[in-house]
Simulated scan of single mutants.
Amino acid sequence: MSAPARRRLGSGGVEVTELSFGAAGIGNLYSPITDDQAAMALDHAWTAGIRYFDTAPHYGLGLSERRLGEALRGRDRSSYVLSTKVGRILEPAAEVSGDDLADGGFAVPRTHRRVWDFSADGVRRSLDASLTRLRVDRVDVVFLHDPDDHGEEAFREGYPALEKLRSEGVVGAIGAGMNQAEMLTRFVRDTDVDAVLCAGRYTLLDHRALAELLPAASARGASVVIGGVFNSGLLADPRPGARFDYTEAPPELLARARALAAVAERHGTTLRAAALAFPFGHPAVASVLVGIHAPEQVTDAAAQFAAPVPAGFWQEIRERGLLPEGVPLPGDARVPAPGDIRDDMTGPVPGRDRP
Rank of each mutant, 00 (worst) to 15 (best):
G10E: 09
A23V: 12
D36H: 12
A38L: 04
A41I: 08
L42W: 01
I50V: 15
G60S: 11
G62L: 04
A71M: 00
L72C: 08
R88Y: 12
I89P: 02
L101R: 15
G105S: 10
G105H: 01
G105F: 00
S130F: 01
L131Q: 03
D137H: 14
D137W: 02
F143L: 07
H150C: 11
E153L: 08
A154N: 05
L162H: 00
L162Q: 01
K164M: 12
L165S: 05
A173P: 11
I174W: 00
I174P: 02
N179S: 08
R186I: 10
A195P: 07
L197N: 04
G200T: 07
Y202S: 05
A209L: 00
E212N: 13
A222G: 11
A222Y: 05
V229S: 09
N231Y: 04
P238A: 04
R239W: 00
G241F: 01
A242P: 06
T247N: 10
T247V: 13
E248L: 09
A249H: 03
P251R: 14
A255F: 06
A257C: 12
A257V: 10
L260V: 04
A261T: 03
V263T: 13
G291W: 00
T299V: 15
A302G: 10
A306L: 13
A306D: 15
R318A: 14
E325I: 03
R334K: 08
T346S: 15
V349D: 00
P350M: 05
